[in-house]
Amino acid sequence: MPVPSERYGELFTDLTEQSTTRSNKRCLYIHVPFCRVRCTFCNFFQNASSRKLVDDYFDALMKEIEIKSQLEWTQSGLFHAVYIGGGTPTDLSPDQVERLGKAIHSSFPLATDCEITLEGRTNRFSDEMFDKALEGGFNRFSFGVQSFDTKSKTKCKTP
């Protein structure tokens, strides 16, 4: 059932004041809502990437991680999986990807075998991005199969 927007804050507080036990498996999702262009198959496109928009979003995201990681609920149990999705998180710079991974590791209680996934496109995933993601602690990468189609007219056209 949809939650009326005026109840978001109250509901968030109610949910995060509930305790959890360390034995409960939890997952963390972080959204990066940017794409270069709208792909023909996608109905979710909202924000065309620009360096300024991405940088501003990233700064706000880092503040949000700092704030939300301090909640008692956040610290009361382990996270067993972290997924960075979007849009396209690989529209972040390689340095931002590394900082994000390190912030996740230092801010949230993670299980020792926590799977930390970075979603992206192969055509924007350079060796530098891969190296910085590994340095940030990412241990799983998810690429949409449409990223492997280099000849189709209906593929996502990104520079």
Rank of each mutant, 00 (worst) to 15 (best):
D113S: 11
E115G: 05
L92M: 05
Q70V: 00
K151R: 11
Q146F: 07
N139M: 04
T40I: 10
T20K: 02
P109L: 01
T154S: 07
Y8A: 03
F34Y: 15
L11A: 05
E10P: 01
C156R: 10
T40R: 09
D56S: 14
Q70G: 03
R124Y: 00
M129C: 02
E115I: 08
Q146D: 15
L11N: 09
A133S: 01
K25E: 06
G137L: 14
I84V: 15
G137Y: 14
E119C: 06
L110M: 11
G136L: 09
G87H: 13
I116P: 08
Y83N: 06
K153W: 09
G136Y: 10
A111L: 02
M1Q: 06
A60I: 03
D127K: 14
V145M: 07
S69V: 02
Y57A: 01
Q75L: 04
E66N: 08
T16W: 15
R124G: 04
I104K: 15
A111S: 09
S93W: 09
K102M: 05
V3K: 06
D59F: 11
S147Q: 03
G87R: 12
Q18N: 07
H31Y: 10
K102D: 12
R140H: 11
C39A: 06
R26P: 00
R38V: 07
S147W: 04
H105F: 04
E10Y: 05
G77I: 00
R22N: 00
K157F: 11
G86P: 08
E128N: 08
L134W: 01
E66F: 14
G144R: 07
I67A: 13
V3N: 04
I116L: 09
I84R: 13
E72H: 08
F138V: 11
E64V: 01
K102E: 05
V37D: 09
R140L: 03
D55P: 02
T20G: 01
R121I: 04
F138N: 08
K153M: 15
P159I: 08
T20F: 03
E72S: 02
R121M: 06
E135M: 04
M62R: 12
A103Y: 05
S147Y: 09
D59P: 00
T13F: 15
T112Q: 12
E66I: 13
M129S: 01
L53M: 15
L78T: 00
Y57D: 10
D95M: 11
P94T: 06
M62T: 09
T158F: 05
Y83V: 08
H31E: 15
E119W: 08
R38S: 10
D131A: 03
F45R: 09
C42G: 09
F138G: 07
K151G: 10
S23E: 01
Y29D: 14
T20M: 01
T16D: 15
C35N: 14
W73A: 00
